[in-house]
Design a protein around this nucleic acid. Structure first.
Length: 821
RNA sequence: GGGGGAGUGGUGAAAUGGCAGACACGCAUGCCUUAGGAGCAUGUGCCCAAAAGGCGUGGAGGUUCGAAUCCUCUCUCCCCCA
């Protein structure tokens, strides 16, 4: 600080606590970030971050997600786009209700208090949000359209009600969608889920499975695309029927599904799921007792245990046999709990030679193991584990010698020709279960008459308002079942009706919110089409990878449904996606309870700009990072240096034409090029480091005093502009202090001159056998030959080469010379 | 078990076929200061007292004039799926 004080007795130190609130207020008063739907000579650019759940406080993880995203939006604005960067709250969901139960607070009140607090905290970040477009999904103006789209889907067969096995979360006391179960546990509560039979509402996402696999037009990380692809889980296979006509029951065949029909000649037994309806029909009287007791055991075992690869495979013989249609071999039929009734056909053809689970089962029950696919270098010996790879067929009658690929094709064709079965495509993806037996969500707009028949609420009667409730205890039934006023309707046409009491999965809310940001207010329609078309699809979406197979898949599905219903033409909601990494502290996840890191005190002490810059400087945004209080100092020191050089009294510099002017100019242009190219691809860390380099060198230029006032001022202007997207407050203040017109955020980024950004003097590296031995500086315009001879004449190189013979000379233009000896 | 990503100083990291460690933290020494969780200067990959030199991007091999970067195998960690 001595430097400033010496140079300028009027020096005012950097005080973020004063300037940050000041500018936040001025921005708000001037509606600086209010985004018009069109702006003359500017293209629209929709920069969206995944909106938060209003859990109460914005933690540092939110800062990590939202401030670099804002820097990118600001950067695009300064590149000349009309940028919309909206924010809202994903405001329905269980925590509100759980707070109501635990602390006896009204969920609505709790939610709105949290929203108010978080909106205040959002404003501390200095983000360029257009709050005029804010949306809260828990308001009737918003959820009315959830209901509207649900009815549209219902009348088009996409929403339907079905009784069947569902995942049940015993802590949250509600059903869950398949995507919301991870490793057999509820993604939200962490409880082990159980299977229940219940009628529930579904959306037919499986109709779109094939189209959802098409991701060519998406500029998304491959990782996310792969996760979606794996989740959809398309597999090509064959359904083949094993003959049981000799058993004299109504069923004549057992259908199994396999992706490896090339192993059909290796089938030595069949395993049915214990729940398979055929089991009772085919079990012989001798086996009845054993089968019954096994079934009881299996039903009480969790699905996770049953499919665990660690667990012993068990089963019981049914006493019956079937016939392999391809070779007429007699095949014994077992039941085993590692086969699930809910996947495929509930029966598998077991090929112990080439499937590990079948191999384990065969070992345990002494069943024959037949090898029909030859592993590489196999000479007929027995295997100690299943060979699951592809190979050449053996012991497979006329198909011997074929490759697995070819055999799959030929055998499938034969099976279809002879009517033994058919080629089938299966998907891992299940229809989206959207019913939740909880209160704080969108009521499903359905009524049941006294016969239990389904009647959709008519669109004119929307929204079905979520009533205020008094009791929220999860009982396994929606708390709405306790509200008689809500529940019973006297319908003019159908008489006494009962409302559906389940509410919608909150992922419905986030499946189309981006559309509403583009067109926030129409009361009579879900959105205004010209506005929608001018903003959509979202140009840049930013958020965490945890939503890869939930939100991101649902939103793509919703987009395609609404497209097919004629609302718009675009195929995808989010054109580009960037996933930020996870922010840790002491190598651990930051959480409210165990490892807290509250941003508000940090902002109070160091300022929002410092926190923003530190988070961006940590490392590459997509890799995440580890917060450290110690390294934070680097950024606060640098901000002080920035403040210092941008507020110096320049009167002691000569006005123009000084010796080093060209060098400070070249430095500026190099930095412009580097920062602009880095921000484009979210490399904030290296953009900041090149700005640091520039400030360090500018200090040196100042100390030498061989620069003019004009050149200095020009460089100061450039540094403020380049820093503006990342540190909006300090740059606004310095912009004003340097006499420029409000606001720096409405300026364009400077452009660079390629010639100025390039180096004139080039350092040539001299290597011998690829090892660095010396280096020298040349002028750009030298001939290749001259450069090589210069290199040969270097004292060091001469000494080393004295007793050596040069075999080869390699010259890489303007980079290096390598002598091979 | 399958798929994907990562592994570089004491620390966060940079370099994506051409000077390994930019930038920053920390540390050390010095200066300034009544004081410092302030500022300034210099140094800081490892080995060697220093210089010269050698070694060095998880490990082993390969391609290349040249590899952190490309290829093969392998170890460790993280994520997704079973």
């Amino acid at each position: 600080m001595t430097k400033n004080i010496k140079n300028n007795p009027n020096f005012i130190p950097y005080n973020p606590a004063e300037i940050e609130p000041k500018w936040q207020k001025i921005w708000e008063e001037n509606e600086l970030y209010k985004t018009p739907d069109t702006k003359k000579n500017k293209d629209n650019y929709f920069a969206l971050t995944m909106f938060p759940y209003p859990s109460g406080d914005l933690h540092i993880g939110h800062w990590y997600a939202f401030t670099p995203a804002d820097a990118h939006a600001r950067y695009m604005r300064m590149k000349g786009y009309n940028v919309m960067h909206p924010q809202g709250f994903d405001a329905f969901g269980l925590p509100a209700e759980n707070a109501a139960i635990e602390r006896n607070i009204n969920p609505k009140k709790w939610t709105f208090e949290n929203i108010n607090n978080m909106r205040r905290q959002f404003k501390l970040m200095g983000n360029s949000y257009d709050w005029h477009r804010e949306l809260l999904t828990c308001t009737p103006e918003y959820y009315k359209w959830n209901q509207y789209f649900f009815l549209e889907m219902y009348s088009n067969g996409i929403a339907y009600r079905k009784d069947g096995p569902v995942w049940w979360d015993p802590i949250d006391q509600t059903t869950l969608a398949n995507e919301q179960v991870k490793d057999g546990k509820s993604e939200r509560s962490g409880a082990e889920v159980i299977k229940k039979m219940m009628p529930q509402w579904y959306l037919k996402i499986t109709d779109y499975a094939e189209e959802l696999l098409e991701m060519d037009e998406l500029e998304w990380p491959d990782r996310i695309k792969n996760m979606q692809k794996n989740w959809i889980g398309k597999s090509n296979g064959v359904e083949i029927n094993f003959d049981i006509s000799h058993l004299s029951i109504s069923e004549k065949t057992i259908t199994t599904f396999t992706t490896r029909i090339d192993t059909i000649f290796g089938v030595t037994f069949l395993v049915l799921a214990p729940e398979n309806k055929l089991v009772d029909l085919i079990t012989t009287s001798e086996q009845k007792e054993a089968v019954e007791s096994y079934k009881k055991l299996a039903i009480s075992t969790s699905e996770i245990d049953r499919t665990s690869t660690e667990r012993d495979k068990t089963g019981v013989f049914t006493g019956s046999y079937c016939k392999n249609p391809l070779n007429n071999e007699k095949v014994p039929i077992f039941i085993g709990d590692y086969v699930l009734s809910t996947y495929g056909t509930g029966a598998v053809m077991s090929v112990p030679g080439h499937d590990q689970r079948d191999y384990d089962f065969a070992q345990k029950y002494n069943l024959p193991i037949k090898i029909v696919i030859s592993p590489p270098n196999w000479n007929g010996e027995n295997l100690t584990e299943a060979y699951t790879g592809e190979g050449i067929l053996v012991n497979s009658s006329s198909f011997d010698g074929l490759s697995s690929k070819l055999a799959i094709e030929k055998i499938s064709n034969l099976i279809e020709k002879k009517n033994f079965g058919k080629k089938t495509i299966t998907y891992h993806l299940r229809d989206w279960l959207i019913s939740r037996q909880r209160y704080w969500g969108t009521p499903i707009p359905i009524m049941y008459d006294q016969n239990g028949e389904i009647h959709p609420v008519s669109k004119e009667d929307l929204p079905v308002i979520l009533p205020d409730a008094k009791e929220f205890k999860p009982t396994g039934q929606s708390p709405l079942t306790l509200d008689e006023d809500f529940l019973s309707i006297n319908h003019p046409k159908y008489g006494k009706m009962r409302r559906e009491t389940d509410t919608m999965d909150t992922f419905v809310d986030s499946s189309w919110y981006h559309l509403r940001f583009a067109s926030p207010n129409p009361q009579e329609k879900p959105f205004n089409k010209p506005k929608l078309d001018s903003w959509m699809p979202v140009h840049q979406y930013m958020g965490g990878a945890e939503h890869a197979v939930m939100h991101l898949l649902y939103a793509r599905f919703f987009n395609k449904v609404l497209r097919d219903l004629g609302y718009f033409k675009f195929n995808e909601p989010y054109k580009r996606l960037f996933n930020q990494g996870v922010l840790l502290k002491d190598h651990q996840k930051i959480s409210k309870r165990s490892n807290p890191l509250a941003p508000d005190p940090l902002v109070k002490e160091h300022g929002a700009d410092a926190v923003r810059l530190y988070l961006m400087f940590l490392g590459p945004w997509d890799q995440g990072g580890d917060w450290s209080d110690e390294s934070f100092n680097g950024i606060t020191r640098w901000l002080k240096r920035i403040w210092n050089i941008c507020t110096r009294d320049t009167s002691e510099l000569i006005q123009e034409n000084q010796k080093d002017d060209i060098y400070i100019k070249k430095l500026s242009h190099k930095t412009i090029k580097k920062v602009i190219n880095d921000l484009k691809i979210f490399k904030f860390n290296t953009a900041i480091s090149s700005l640091m380099e520039m400030t360090n060198l500018m200090n040196k230029f100042w100390d030498e005093r061989k620069i003019s006032q004009n050149a200095w001022k020009e460089s100061i202007k450039i540094i403020i502009l380049l820093l503006a997207p990342m540190a909006p407050h300090i740059t606004e203040e310095l912009w004003e202090k340097n006499g420029y017109k409000f606001s720096v955020h409405q300026e364009n980024l400077p452009s660079w001159d390629e010639n100025l950004a390039a180096d004139e003097d080039i350092t040539i590296i001299v290597q011998i056998n690829g090892k660095l031995r010396d280096q020298f500086v040349i002028n750009k315009n030298l001939e290749d030959k001259e450069i090589i001879s210069l290199a040969l004449n270097l004292e060091k190189i001469k000494n080393i080469l004295e007793s050596q013979e040069i075999k080869r000379e390699i010259y890489v233009k303007e980079k290096l010379v390598n002598f091979v000896v």
